[in-house]
Amino acid sequence: MAQAAVNTKWWGGGKSPFNVEYGKLMMWYFLMSDAFTFGAFLISYGTVRMSSASWPDPNHVFNAVPFFSGVHMPLVFVSFMTFVLIVSSVTMVLAVNEGHKGNKQGVIKYLFWTIVFGLIFLGSQAWEWTHLYHEGAWWGHNPFPNADGTVATTNFTNFFFTITGFHGFHVFSGVVINLIALLMTQNGVFERRGHYLMIEKVGLYWHFVDLVWVFVFLFFYLV
């Protein structure tokens, strides 16, 4: 690579200056764009929260775990969800890696696991939403008092459902895209193309969605 960089002018025209195919470039710019969408949501949430005198304590809101009703286990379940999503990123890396080697079976195997973990995450989120709903939380309804005991506005639940919902929608589309990529791999589309670039692009999207979750996790559950 260093050799090539010496002999060629990357910006001189006739080739991609970043040595990437256009689709990947578009994906990068799309992710920047999407980062601004999430950024706008999270900053809105942050400013509203900062300008409120008090706010509900996540340790008291997110303390339930399926099959353990009545037990107070703050943040255990969401940590599990986060772990699942991180593992799915790892399997995605492995899928991309198998793609580099041109190993169709490997790509299929790891894409499959990525999809499975994605579905587990979505299922967990569905469970959590249902649980909160039964506690009386929804858009426009907030049963949780502020940490200082005062009555809270509905902003807490409004932002929670909107932002985790928007993220969940991204995970869902990611799963669908992964599924399409899996079917295309199985049908040998990429084998015929001679490269698995599509898996790389799908992977970029998947990692991005995971990364966004880290921020959602941080700002809704941890602080």
Partner: peptide, 10 residues
């Protein structure tokens, strides 16, 4: 970025 012809530097 990607499709400039040969010699068409930025």
């Amino acid at each position: 970025l990607n499709m400039r012809t040969k010699g068409m530097s930025m």
